[in-house]
Write a protein that binds this DNA or RNA. Structure first.
Length: 224
DNA sequence: AAGACCTACAACCGCACAATA
DNA sequence: CTATTGTGCGGTTGTAGGTCT
């Protein structure tokens, strides 16, 4: 058995081998050695032809696995770390337009992968819906997102842009999600005692107008 | 201190579609 | 036209590490 040194990801679990007709296929976390092999191969041969890459590089991985590792981890310019406020705002807006079209949403977030956005959605946004005891796709939750959560994000982005000093009563951690906390009532929504109610026509109009193409474009530029 | 629980995220799986033989 | 192969996408799972009790 080969000796695989350290694990590149944060997994420490045992490496799995699955026998196939023509040998074993490695599964599980990638090692530094494997990463290097794949990176070197792609540097020489370019992206694409993943099955060939898997075979020719000598990696005992499937083409799919190689593709995923490259796109989500090894590719240059992959952005890691916390999702910024601007990114959160874009994700919420684009998801409201396109739903779970993660790869399409990722196109608007340079350096972010569809996998990362999907993870963000599942861990943060779906959690909120769950706490509110409503469906992610329900009108209530969508309204709450659009008319409560997103305007708060806009405010915080503007505040952060306007001054570097902290404003009273506002959290200053730029990476903190402005999560609406759950109160005892399952129908109320928000961290600062805000009771969720259906938005007025004027509020709806204001927010609909905010999401002009220019604003989307502007946000995108901020992320470049 | 230790076990339970939670969160974040890397990676796998199945399916659909496109390209090619 | 049909079968096969490759690729991309979205859903889901498993686990490390952090936090709570």
């Amino acid at each position: 058995m080969e000796d695989y040194p350290q694990v590149a990801g944060n997994y420490g679990c045992a490496i799995n081998y699955q026998s196939e007709e023509d040998g074993e296929v490695r599964k599980g976390p990638w090692t530094v050695e494997e990463d290097n092999i794949l990176s070197d191969y792609i540097t020489i041969h370019g992206e694409g032809r993943w099955n060939a890459a898997a075979r020719c590089s000598g990696l005992k991985r499937t083409g799919k696995s190689c593709r995923l590792r490259w796109l989500n981890y090894l590719r240059p310019n992959v952005r890691r770390g916390n999702i910024t406020l601007e990114e959160q705002l874009l994700i919420l807006e684009l998801h409201s337009r396109w739903g779970n079209r993660w790869s399409k949403i990722a196109e608007y977030l340079p350096g972010r992968t569809d996998n990362e956005i999907k993870n963000y959605w599942r861990t943060r946004v779906q959690k909120q819906a769950k706490q509110l005891k409503c469906e992610v796709n329900s009108k209530q939750f969508r309204d709450a997102m659009r008319y409560v959560w997103m305007p708060r994000l806009v405010e915080r982005i503007q505040a952060a842009a306007g001054s570097s000093t902290s404003t009273a009563g506002q959290p200053t951690d730029p990476n903190m999600v402005p999560e609406p906390s759950v109160t005892t009532s399952s129908d109320s929504f928000d961290a600062q005692g805000f009771e969720y109610e259906n938005p007025s026509n004027a509020e709806v109009e204001t927010m609909e107008n905010f999401w002009s193409e220019e604003n989307i474009w502007f946000l995108q530029q901020q992320l470049m």
